[in-house]
Nucleic acid binder design. Structure first.
Lengths: 191, 191
DNA sequence: AGCCTGATGACAGTCACTGACATCGCTGGA
DNA sequence: TCCAGCGATGTCAGTGACTGTCATCAGGCT
């Protein structure tokens, strides 16, 4: 069966929860790993057995997101252009994040307040871009078109997501994403 | 006058040199700041007076690059579209990097071998993107067009630069950049 | 009951980074 | 010429992230 903890269950989840709370209360830098572990009823050493470093605790969901994106590209109809496939994937990812709602906003607030966390987020996005490009190549898209389409998709996502976070009562993510894709098309056409 | 050191001159330059050498010889993680300082004839504490952290020593040039990009956007003719201005800026930056030639390749080799350094590079690129977007806004370009054009330009730059690094004897950067812009236009048009 | 396995605790150690204070080598003025 | 001031460097002690190692503990299996 799966590796469920034997003692108090869900040690990883408790660590995630404790970390997010403390990062929100005191800020990322002002929080020590020892404090996180203590709040979760564990030790510092155990924290590092579950997460590679102090930042990674905020980025657990990125694996799921990557699968979602890759599957969406793979499942796009044969007739779809590369950009169609990317747009479909980005939209589906947007929907996923919209479901997380308030917790997504909290997470972004923590990240926005700290440069180290922004670095980590950027490399996660780069990883998503690489996965998208790879998925396009499996559809037969050549380089550099695959990488460019992937990077453009991630750029659209970044911008639409920031807009969604800022406008609290605004429109849903999907619409912002579609609008941004149109905007990108218009901008790149102007040469 | 400028702040030239009073003792052995150019302490910062010696630290840069020593760091690059050691990163190339042993790798970034296997090098301690104490070793860098010793090779430069200084102490660890002095290293941190010149560079915010162990990674920053590899990214000194990024300030110059940012100025170059911003100036190029500002100097683009009135008639230029946003994407024209961005393309001109990216090309001028490419030329600048091509001048650094071999040392640019060494630097990229070190960065490519280490995830932390890639994180730092990505946030520098994000900073360039923000500066480009700001420069476009000063030309009267509205959001989100400004940010999208800037992000697209940086995406093109990333991809063209990687290609240039890989193909040792290949064409010059400018041509790769122009080709990538054309490719991006074609890809985004397909929807 | 006794054994095995995986998760956790305990502990020591390295290294990045910081704050506080002493020191040194020049530079400009008395 | 000499000395006061200043900026760059050295010294030292300390914090906290992260790692390696070994002991320990809970539950499953026989």
């Amino acid at each position: 069966m799966q590796g469920m903890g034997r003692w108090e269950p869900n040690a990883r989840g408790r660590l995630e929860q404790a970390a997010l709370e403390l990062y929100l209360e005191r800020g990322f830098e002002q929080t020590t790993v020892a404090e996180i572990a203590k709040r979760a009823g564990l030790t510092e050493r155990t924290f590092f057995r579950h997460f590679a470093d102090k930042r990674e605790v905020l980025f657990w969901g990125s694996g799921t997101l990557q699968e979602q994106l890759v599957n969406a590209v793979a499942d796009a109809p044969e007739s779809a252009t590369p950009m169609d496939a990317i747009a479909a994937a980005i939209e589906s990812a947007g929907v996923l994040l919209q479901l997380r709602g308030e917790s997504a906003r909290q997470r972004q607030a923590v990240i926005a307040a700290n440069t180290e966390l922004q670095e980590r987020e950027l490399i996660k996005l780069a990883s998503l871009s690489a996965a998208l490009a790879e998925a396009l190549r499996r559809r037969g898209v050549a380089e550099p078109a695959a990488s460019l389409a992937a990077e453009a998709g991630i750029a659209v996502f970044k911008i639409a997501y920031v807009r969604w976070i800022d406008e609290t009562g605004g429109p849903d993510v999907s619409r912002l994403i579609r609008e941004s894709f149109d905007e990108l098309k218009a901008v790149t056409a102007g040469r």
